[in-house]
Simulated assay, not measured.
Amino acid sequence: MDGETSGGRRRRYDPARRDRIIDACLQVIGEAGVAGASTRRIAAAADVPLGSITYHFADADELLREAFERFAHRVSDRFEEHMARASTVDEARQAVVDLIDSDVLVDPQELVLTHELYTLAARDPRYRRLTHEWMARSRHALERHFDPATARLLDALIEGLTIHRALDIEPHEPGETRHAVDLATRRATHRGDPA
Rank of each mutant, 00 (worst) to 15 (best):
M1T: 12
S6A: 15
S6W: 15
R10D: 11
R12C: 13
D14K: 15
R17Q: 07
R18P: 04
R18C: 06
D23L: 10
L26N: 01
Q27M: 01
A32W: 06
G33I: 02
G33H: 03
A37E: 02
A37D: 02
R40V: 08
R40S: 12
R40M: 11
R40N: 09
R40K: 13
A44Q: 03
A44Y: 00
A45C: 08
G51M: 04
T54G: 14
Y55K: 05
A60P: 06
L64N: 09
F68K: 04
E69D: 14
F71C: 09
F71V: 07
A72W: 02
V75Y: 04
E81S: 07
H82S: 11
A84E: 10
R85E: 15
S87I: 07
E91A: 05
A92N: 04
Q94R: 11
V97K: 04
L99M: 00
L99Q: 00
D101P: 05
V104A: 13
V112M: 08
H115M: 15
L117G: 02
A122D: 08
R123M: 11
Y127H: 04
Y127E: 03
Y127V: 02
R128Q: 14
E133N: 15
A136K: 13
H140S: 06
H140A: 09
A141F: 14
F146W: 15
A149V: 10
T150F: 06
A151V: 12
A156K: 13
L157P: 01
E159Y: 14
T162E: 12
A166N: 02
D168V: 04
D168R: 07
P171C: 02
E173P: 03
R178L: 11
R178M: 12
H179G: 09
A184Q: 13
A184N: 13
A184V: 12
R191A: 05
D193F: 09
